[in-house]
Design a protein around this nucleic acid. Structure first.
Lengths: 152, 152
DNA sequence: GTTGAAAGAGCATAGTT
DNA sequence: AACTATGCTCTTTCAAC
């Protein structure tokens, strides 16, 4: 196991979630420690898997993904069918999230596509996946808030 | 308006979504152009708002956010109530996404918390917000897939 | 769009307390 | 786990093509 995070770790994480490209020097200024110390901590956070990666955030409308929707999926919940579903959904680039949820629906799937027409095509492909019983799609009219996970 | 993205732009975007901290030099190798060209394109993508930012991705279980849930919110859909709701939800750190959706529910809210107990507390706070009629919460048992938006 | 060069900023690796 | 000091890499900004 890894040590619990202290206040300095959390300050670094918050800074890196806000700006993932900032330099170690800038981080050192933020937390008030020397560069090597901050670098050691950063490497530890990365090695311990607290930081899973760094990603550019793209504007959905600029990359033909201005339409979002959530698809509640029901399907045969056998282990085999699940594995096949996971693989098939992962191969759909517009499928951004898949959550196994409690309740009558098996999966809750978040998709981002260019238009409602593209959404229709995506839904056709999802419904054509083996063992799918039904889909119930909720279209997003407007995204009010979408932000990355912050520490504590 | 800005120019449409070409294949080089998209290659750069894909590389930066996969690793948002890589250097211009590394990017130049990926797309097969010189550093100055890549740097010019990168600055354009940032200025045009195609790239909205760079963020560290944190492991939910490592930052006390191992429990996810989706909350379907119904409330008085007046403009005034909406503004108040948006503000109140934004002030909840565990609320990561808020989507205004079509259908009977007004908002679909994604939350990440440390435990089901913390989820109960969060739901109490959401239900206590002015004009809320009802909430319907779906707990995530397992997140199968969660990935950032990629270009086309 | 390219190459090349020079200056500054940032990073990594020590050795020390 | 923190610091200072040093060499090295990368970035940045020119120029000229």
């Amino acid at each position: 196991m890894s040590r619990p995070l202290d206040d300095t770790d959390r300050a670094m994480l918050r800074a890196l979630v806000a700006d993932g490209r900032q330099t170690v020097r800038a981080l050192a200024k933020v937390v008030g420690l020397s560069e090597p110390s901050v670098r050691d901590r950063l490497q530890r956070l990365e090695r311990d898997g607290v930081i899973e990666g760094y990603h550019a955030e793209l504007a959905p409308t600029e990359v033909e993904a201005g339409t979002a929707a959530f698809v509640a999926l029901r399907f045969d919940p056998s282990k085999q069918a699940k594995d096949a579903m996971n693989k098939a959904l992962t191969h759909e680039p517009c499928v951004l999230e898949v959550h196994e949820v409690a309740g009558e629906d098996c999966y809750l799937v978040k998709v981002r596509v260019s238009s409602t027409e593209a959404l229709a095509d995506t839904l056709d492909r999802i419904r054509a996946m083996p063992s799918v019983h039904s889909t119930n799609t909720t279209i997003v009219l407007r995204t009010i808030l979408e932000r990355p996970l912050l520490p504590r």
